[in-house]
Design a binder for these strands. Structure first.
Lengths: 343, 343
DNA sequence: AGCATAAATGACAGCGCAATCATTATCTGA
DNA sequence: TCAGATAATGATTGCGCTGTCATTTATGCT
C-alpha cells in the first residue's frame, strides 16, 4: 500500500521570491543572508514575499555556488559510550540557534573507518570539523592538514594538533586517580580496562608509571580486555583480578561502566567497599556518583569539551585566525567519595 | 597564531577525470554511480583516472543536479537518553556501507523545536527521514505528509502513521510490567516517572489503567516530575514515594535510570529488594541487568527499532512502494529477575 | 549647488553534476 | 550477410544559488 506522493518538488526559488517582491534575485539572497546591507524597504518586501511563498533556500545550490556548506562534521569512536554522548550534547547545545548543522560520523574505534569518514566529510566542504582522536592514520592526518576548514581535535591536549585542540591531560588525570588511592593508604592497586584503544592504552601506561613511581606496581593486578566496555564486563574483570590476586585492596577502573560493574561484583561477593576494596572510577558520569557507596572518580570535562570545541570552531569560521587560544586544557578533578577512604 | 591555509579548493571535477580517462564526463558519472551500465574497458579507465587524480564527487553539485541528496534525517528528543543512543546505534549500523549519511537533529523534547528541525531537514531534500514521535505539531505533521521522501516514525506502533512506522505497543508493555508485579504478589504498587513527555504520559496512563483493573490503583503512590530523568532523580522519587506512602511494596519505574536510582535508595535505607520492595524497570539497558540484585524489567527493542527503521527506509528509497509491511510491531519482553520475586 | 563618497542594487556568469535525448558501437538470428 | 535489436557513449542543458563587477541612488561636505 504505497501511499506517499513522490511529487516532483516545485518549491519556490530565489527568482520566484524576487519576482514577487519586485527586486532582483541577488537582493533577495542578500536580504536573507546579510539583512544589514539591504535597505529597510527592500528587506520588508522580501520578507513579505518569502512568507507568502513559503520560500526556503536550497542548501545544495548555495553550497555549490558559494563552495561552502553549513555542515559541521563531528567524528566520534562510539555512540553508546557515555563519554561521547556527553560531548555530543555539549556540541549540539553550542550549535543550537546557529545556521550550522552537526553531522556525526561514528568510526567505531577503527582508524581506517575514521579515515574513510574524514574523506567523505571533507568532500562535502564542511564549515568545520571536530575529531575525537589524535591517532589518525597518516593519510587521515594529511587530509586534515590540507583541509580548507578549521578543525578541532578533542579529548586530549596535544602539542602536535592539526589546527586547534581542546581536552585535558589524560595521563595526569590517571596519575591523580592512582595518587588518590595511594594517599588513602591502599597498597595493592589493581587496574581494569576494556577496549584497548590508543587512548585507553596511554592511560594504562600512565597508571603503570604512577604505580611504579610509588613502588606499588604489580603487573599481575592489571586486567584488560579488547572487548567493548560494559557494566557486566566490569564485574567479570574484577572477578578475574580477584582470582589472580585476591589480596588486591583497591582498583582503578578506566571508565564508569567498569567501576559500577566492579562495585556490583564486590557487593555480590560481600566485599566491603571501601574498607576491603577501594574503587576509583574514571570520567564520573552521574550514575557513578549515585551508587551506594558513591564512587570516587576522576571527573573529566566531557560536556565542556564539546561546548568549547564548537565555540572555538564557530569563532574561527566566523573570522579565520581570530581564535588565539588554539590549545585549551580544561583540566580534570579528583572527586573523593565513599568508594575509597583513608585507612 | 592562525596557521591553517584556507586554500581555495581546486579539487578535480568530473570533467578533469573525463579528460584524463579519455571519455566523456557523463560516462565518468555513470561509471561511478552505476558501474553495471558502462563497459568494462571504460570503467577501468575511469577508475584509474579517479585514483590518479584523487577525485571525490561533490555532493552539493550532485544534489543540485539530481534534486536529491544522500542524507537521511534522524530526529530524536534527546541525545543523552540511553533509549535513543541505542536507537542511534541501530540506525548507524544499518547505514554503514551504504552511500547514505545520517544527520541527527535533537529537538530536546520540544515539539516546536521539532517542527523547526523538520522544516530545516526537509529543505535539504533528504533521501528519507526517521522521526521519534507521533506527537508533532499540526504544522510539522503537515510538512511530513507533503514531504517527497519516505518517512519512518519510530518507538510506537500507531495506526495513523504519516508513512511507515516501527515500534511496539507502549501501553501493553507497561501493562505487562504492572501485571508482573501483581503476579508476584505485590499489592501496593507505586510508579515513578520523570520528564513527562507525551510518551511517558501515555505510559503512566496505561499503568493507572492496569492497576485499576487489578484493583491496585492508588494515586498517592504515583510520583512524577517534569525534570529530566537521572539516577539521582530515581533516588529522590523513591524517597518521596516512601515519605508519602511508606507501605508501598513494589514500584514500577518509567526507565532504567530511575530504577537504578530507586534500587540505590533502597540500599541506602537498608530496604530489602525484592522482599520488602519489588522494583520493575523499563527499557532494560545492560546496566540494569548487572545490578545486584539484577533488575526485573520490561525490555524494549531499542536497537532493533533503529536498524529496522533504517532498513525500511533504505528499501523504500531504493524502490518506492516496495515495502509492504509499513507498520512493524517489534514487541517487548518482560524479564523477571532478582529485583522482584513471588511472595 | 556641486562634487566626492558611500550605500544599495542589479546583470551576468558559473559552481559541478545528472537528466534527457541523440547518436554510435556491438550483438543477435535468419 | 544484413536488418533489427540492444548496449554503450556523448552533447547539451539547467538545477538554484552566490561571487564579481558594474551601475545606480542616497548621503555628506564645502
Amino acid at each position: 500500500m504505497p501511499r506517499k506522493s513522490r511529487a516532483g518538488s516545485d518549491r519556490p526559488t530565489l527568482a520566484d521570491v524576487a519576482r514577487e517582491a519586485g527586486v532582483s534575485a541577488i537582493t533577495v539572497s542578500r536580504a536573507i543572508r546579510s539583512p544589514g546591507i539591504v535597505s529597510q524597504k527592500a528587506r520588508a518586501k522580501v520578507e513579505e514575499a518569502v512568507r507568502k511563498l513559503g520560500y526556503t533556500p536550497d542548501p545544495a545550490a548555495s553550497a555549490l555556488a558559494s563552495r561552502s556548506t553549513s555542515t559541521i562534521g563531528l567524528l566520534v569512536p562510539s555512540l553508546t559510550n557515555n563519554v561521547f554522548s556527553d560531548v555530543l550534547r555539549g556540541v549540539y547545545d553550542g550549535a543550537q540557534d546557529t545556521r550550522f548543522f552537526i553531522q556525526i560520523g561514528n568510526y567505531r574505534y577503527s582508524a581506517l573507518e575514521e579515515e574513510g569518514l574524514i574523506r567523505a566529510f571533507l568532500s562535502q566542504r564542511p564549515a568545520g570539523m571536530i575529531v575525537s582522536s589524535r591517532d589518525q592514520t597518516d593519510a587521515a592526518r594529511a587530509l586534515l592538514e590540507q583541509a580548507s576548514c578549521p578543525i578541532v581535535q578533542i579529548m586530549e591536549t596535544s602539542d602536535d594538533a592539526v589546527d586547534m585542540c581542546v581536552g585535558f591531560d589524560q595521563l595526569a588525570s590517571v596519575r591523580a586517580g592512582a595518587e588518590h588511592l595511594r594517599a588513602c593508604g591502599y597498597r595493592r592497586l589493581g587496574f581494569l580496562s576494556a577496549r584497548m584503544d590508543p587512548r585507553a592504552r596511554r592511560r594504562l601506561e600512565a597508571f603503570r608509571d604512577a604505580a611504579s613511581a610509588a613502588g606499588l606496581h604489580d603487573e599481575a593486578r592489571i586486567v584488560t580486555t579488547p572487548l567493548p566496555s560494559s557494566v557486566g564486563l566490569g564485574r567479570q574483570l574484577l572477578e578475574q583480578l580477584l582470582d589472580r590476586a585476591p589480596d588486591t585492596d583497591a582498583v582503578m577502573c578506566n571508565n564508569d561502566d567498569l567501576a559500577v560493574g566492579a562495585l556490583m561484583e564486590a557487593r555480590a561477593r560481600n566485599i566491603d567497599v571501601p574498607r576491603e576494596l577501594g574503587i576509583c572510577s574514571y570520567n564520573d558520569i552521574e550514575m557513578a556518583r549515585q551508587m551506594v557507596p558513591s564512587l570516587s572518580a576522576v571527573a573529566t570535562p566531557r560536556r565542556e569539551i564539546g561546548s568549547r570545541a564548537i565555540a572555538m570552531l564557530l569563532a574561527e569560521i566566523e573570522s579565520p585566525g581570530s581564535v588565539s587560544e588554539r590549545r585549551v586544557d580544561l583540566g580534570f578533578a579528583m572527586m573523593a567519595r565513599g568508594s575509597t577512604s583513608p585507612r
